[in-house]
Simulated assay, not measured.
Amino acid sequence: MRDPLLPPPSRRPDVEDDFADGPDPALWVAHYLPHWTTPDRSAARFDVAADSLRLRIDEAQLDWRPEDAPLRVSNLQTGVFSGPLGSTRGTHRHRPDGLSVRTETPARLLWAPRSGRVDITVSASTDEGAMLAAWLVGTEHERAEDAGEICIFEIDAEAVGSSTVARTGIKAHGDPGLRTDMAEVTLPFDAARPHTWTAIWGAGETVIGCEGVVVRRIPQAPDCPLFLLVDLFEVGGRGGSYPKTARLHRVRGWSGA
C-alpha cells in the first residue's frame, strides 16, 4: 500500500493554467531550450481542444538540432536563460558533446521556484516512438552548477496499456549537490487517460506522486531555481501516423509550498 500524498496548500496556486485559451504567455515559453538551436526547430506545435492543450509532433517538423536527429519535440517551459552567442552558458546543458548558444535568449524567469509543489494533469501518447515527459530543471542563470533535474515522469508510448510503466527521479547533470537516482514505477491504469502527477521538493527531499499516492520519496532535492518543462518527443525516427499527440489538461504550482 502506497502512502497518500499530502493535499495541496489551502492557498491559491501561484501559477495555474487550464489551457482553455492556449498556453498563458505570462507563464509559458512555447519553445524547447531555444538557445541551443534555432527558432524554427525549437518551436512547439499545439492546438487547443475541448478540455486540453494538444501537443503535436507533425510529419514535416524539423529535428530539434541536426546533431541530435532523429529527435523532434514540442515543449512548453516556464522560462529561458542563455549566455551570449557561441557560449556554453544556458539552461539544461544536458549533453556533454559541445552544446553552444545558437540563439541568444534573454533571461525570462516566468516561474522558477527553489522549492514548492506542482500538479500536472496529462494524457500520455500512444503514438509510435512518442514520449511524454515533465521535468523541473535548474535555470543555471545564477551558477552553471545549478544544473540538476527532477524528472517528474517520462512515459514512452510503448509502455502505455492497462498498466503503465514510467521513469521518475533525480538527474544530477553535473550538479555537485545531487546524485542521479532514477527508477521505473508501474501505474495500475492506462496513462493515455487524464491523470495527475505531483512533485513536492525542498529541504533536501523530493516526493513524486501520481493520482494522489506517493510513487517515490527521494532524500535529496535541487537547491536552486527550477523551470518546469512539459514536452512531447518523437525519439526513434519518423514512422507511424501523424500528428503524434499528447494532452496537457492543467498545471497548478505553489512556490515554497
Score class of each variant (00 low, 15 high):
180 T>H: 02
176 P>K: 01
179 R>A: 12
180 T>R: 03
184 E>K: 13
201 W>Q: 09
200 I>E: 15
155 I>K: 09
190 D>M: 05
216 R>H: 01
158 E>A: 15
155 I>G: 11
154 E>K: 15
210 C>K: 02
195 H>P: 00
159 A>R: 15
206 T>M: 06
189 F>K: 04
197 W>E: 10
148 G>L: 10
201 W>C: 05
227 F>T: 06
189 F>C: 04
194 P>S: 01
227 F>K: 04
210 C>H: 13
191 A>C: 04
170 I>G: 04
224 C>E: 14
170 I>A: 08
146 D>K: 04
226 L>A: 07
222 P>I: 10
172 A>S: 11
204 G>N: 13
173 H>P: 00
195 H>L: 12
166 A>I: 15
179 R>H: 11
226 L>I: 06
202 G>S: 10
201 W>I: 03
165 V>Y: 06
158 E>V: 14
196 T>R: 11
222 P>V: 09
144 A>V: 13
202 G>A: 09
216 R>M: 02
172 A>Y: 01
187 L>Y: 06
220 Q>H: 00
162 S>W: 13
183 A>D: 05
208 I>P: 03
200 I>F: 07
222 P>C: 06
207 V>F: 01
175 D>R: 03
173 H>I: 04
162 S>F: 10
203 A>P: 03
143 R>V: 07
182 M>V: 12
211 E>L: 01
191 A>Y: 01
163 S>I: 14
203 A>W: 13
155 I>Y: 12
176 P>C: 00
186 T>C: 13
205 E>R: 15
187 L>D: 08
161 G>C: 14
178 L>E: 00
150 I>Q: 13
148 G>S: 08
162 S>T: 15
157 A>I: 02
164 T>G: 09
